[in-house]
């Protein structure tokens, strides 16, 4: 093998090696834990076993996902659920008065 090829192979191996080690250190990095609201409720949450193409073994299409997920009314706001307060069609206030 030619020298430049060796250099690039070594670089790629180094990066993959880093990713390998990094991905197995399961203490959450500082940046990840702070600040971000926990993804509770809402339609932002994925069902337990997810991806397209996977068998709907758990969660999945057609079943209501364990938590959150589309199909089940999200706990707060979110897709398909009527807004708790205000909004169109709410009994108090607004239209007709």
């Amino acid at each position: 093998m030619k020298a430049p090829l060796v250099v690039i192979v070594v670089i790629v191996l180094g990066i993959l090696g880093f990713l390998l080690v990094y991905s197995q250190q399961h203490d959450m990095p500082a940046q990840a834990t702070q600040g971000h609201g926990a993804p509770s409720g809402g339609y932002g949450q994925a069902p337990a076993a997810g991806g397209y193409g996977s068998a709907p073994s758990a969660g999945g299409y057609g079943h209501a996902p364990a938590s959150g997920g589309y199909g089940a009314p999200p706990s707060a706001g979110g897709y398909g659920a009527p807004p708790t307060a205000g909004g169109y069609g709410a009994p108090s206030g607004g239209y007709g008065k």
């Binding site: 993959l16 990713l19 390998l20 991905s23 197995q24 250190q25 399961h26 959450m28 990840a32 994925a46 337990a48 076993a49 997810g50 991806g51």
Partner: peptide
């Protein structure tokens, strides 16, 4: 192995 490790690390499945 790496992708699964990342998922565990960040506590996500997707």
């Amino acid at each position: 192995f790496v992708m699964k490790g990342m998922q565990i690390k960040f506590g996500v499945t997707n």
